[in-house]
């Protein structure tokens, strides 16, 4: 069975520091903070650049392409009524040490593998756009 996500999503607490991340999907683009001085992307949002310590982080869109670094298949009914769903770490192709936690969708659990190429899509709930990822092509 192709995975989707939990039956109920607990929406994030949107604040001034993370609003760009959770609402940026309105135009279909995934965004991360990027340092205007040293050009590093940073995630999760930080008060200042942890690489060069400059106060120069601002949101910037990325390609939305990523690689799977780890994944789990979640069977326990922490959220009742959920079919087994996949939680994954993915790293963005622009900078491998920028990772985010997400659900992989449109994939069979048995076809999962570390290193799989995935691409972002957004699921809107209220004013939040949740970044989910699906394989870029059918697994071989």
């Amino acid at each position: 069975m192709t995975a989707s996500g939990p039956s109920l999503r607990l929406l994030p607490r949107v604040d001034d520091e993370n609003r760009f991340f959770w609402t940026g999907g309105a135009d279909g683009r995934l965004r991360f903070q990027r340092c205007a001085v040293c050009a590093h992307f940073v995630h999760p949002p930080a008060p200042r650049c942890p690489f060069c310590l400059a106060d120069g982080l601002r949101p910037e869109p990325v390609s939305g392409r990523a690689l799977v670094e780890s994944f789990t298949v979640n069977h326990q009914q922490w959220i009742p009524g959920s079919d087994p769903y996949i939680v994954a770490w993915v790293s963005i192709v622009e900078q491998p040490d920028v990772r985010l936690t997400t659900n992989l969708v449109g994939v069979e659990p048995d076809d999962l593998r570390v290193g799989m190429e995935v691409v972002v899509e957004f699921e809107q709930q209220d004013d939040v756009y949740l970044p989910l990822f699906r394989p870029t092509s059918a697994p071989s």
Binding site: L10, S70, Q76, W78, V87, W89, L100
Partner: peptide
């Protein structure tokens, strides 16, 4: 809404909620 809780917002929407799940991510890797 404090720094210690804010980071859970990056996990909870995806159904990543409980200790076994947090550990499983590291275990698979």
């Amino acid at each position: 809404a404090n720094a210690e809780n804010a980071h859970f917002s990056f996990y909870s929407p995806f159904g990543l909620l409980a200790p076994a799940q947090w550990v499983a991510m590291a275990a698979q890797r």
